[in-house]
């Protein structure tokens, strides 16, 4: 098992390395000179050169990459051109806001998604199943930005129940935080909930048709015992993967949610950085998110083994 974990760790490291190369290349192929963008077209050649030297832009691309990686390993992602501050500071400032919207969304979506999916599967073909399937179809098909602006209009403008936009940190005033976070969290959770519910439903259906479930029923076990003790455990294992993948979706979704609800989080930082060609910020944010996603997936892969003895066996 130790060997498996080690191998898995090695693979993750390689993936992170690839991510860093892709991210760096992605930003490097963008057109335009960041110096001109930062200093304006009026800048003299000397000023431009000085700028290039300051941000290592005068060095060969490969050397730039190694310098960037060297910094990244020491926790230095370079400086933001627009904010004139280290990228790590920008991220540290904004990350809590994105997490305080994304984490509740992830938790709500996972819990409700599993509950809905299981109910849907147990009462297959009934009214409840049809309703849940309908909702999850909408959740997967409706654009988040569109749902967001509709929710703002209906609940914010028409009914005047919830704030139009803005953000209050939970540490400042928890009541206000909840009041401001209801809409963004719900919109973000809706899409996730749909995919978790869908996955749970199809897994549950597959498990319910297995022989050992029939055997359990034939042995006279109560239906709730069959569902909760025998079926659920097996059905939920693949759902963990789905939930792990959703971490990526949360960061992607925060781009739209933070734009619609005017929240200064990582999503809006990336939007600003892309619009203003703030190279270091783009690189830093993409790298951070991807490394985060890789780590979560690694943890899930390892969790699998602890949850499922069959997988643990295959590790040897």
């Amino acid at each position: 098992m130790g060997r498996y974990i080690l191998k898995r760790l090695g693979i993750s490291l390689f993936v992170v390395l690839m991510v860093s190369i892709i991210t760096f290349a992605l930003v490097k192929i963008l057109p335009g000179d960041p110096a001109v963008l930062a200093l304006g077209t009026e800048a003299t050649d000397e000023e431009l050169e000085e700028f290039h030297a300051k941000y290592n832009l005068d060095k060969p691309v490969v050397e730039q990459y190694f310098l960037w990686m060297k910094g990244a390993m020491h926790g230095d992602l370079g400086d933001s051109i627009k904010f004139s501050r280290p990228v790590t500071v920008c991220i540290a400032e904004r990350l809590p806001r994105t997490i305080s919207i994304g984490l509740p969304a992830l938790i709500i979506a996972s819990v409700l998604g599993i509950v809905f999916g299981v109910i849907s599967a147990v009462f297959r073909g009934g009214v409840v199943d049809n309703f849940i399937t309908f909702l999850s179809t909408i959740g997967l098909g409706a654009p988040q930005f569109w749902l967001g602006i509709l929710a703002v209009t209906v609940f914010g403008l028409r009914l005047d129940m919830l704030p139009l936009s803005g953000y209050v940190a939970p540490s400042e005033d928890f009541g206000q935080y909840v009041y401001h976070a209801i809409l963004p969290v719900s919109i973000l959770a809706f899409g996730l909930l749909a995919s978790v519910a869908r996955q749970s439903r199809s897994n549950m259906l597959e498990v319910i048709n297995q022989d050992y479930i029939r055997t359990a029923r034939a042995n006279g076990l109560s239906e709730s015992r069959v569902i909760f003790r025998h079926a659920l455990k097996n059905a939920l294992i693949p759902v963990i993967t789905t939930i792990g993948l959703q971490v990526r979706v949360i960061f992607g979704g925060s781009l739209m949610i933070e734009q619609v609800f005017n929240i200064a989080g990582i999503g809006s930082l990336i939007t600003i950085a892309i619009q203003g060609r703030d190279y270091m910020v783009i690189e830093g944010c993409v790298l951070m998110i991807s490394v985060f996603v890789v780590i979560i997936n690694l943890i899930i892969d390892l969790l699998y083994g602890f949850v499922d003895p069959r997988i643990r066996k295959s590790w040897r």
Binding site: M18, R248, V249, F251, G252, L255, M256, V286, I289
Partner: peptide, 9 residues
């Protein structure tokens, strides 16, 4: 590695 980067970003 490609999959780890959110497609929208």
């Amino acid at each position: 590695a490609f999959i780890a980067i959110p497609p929208i970003i």
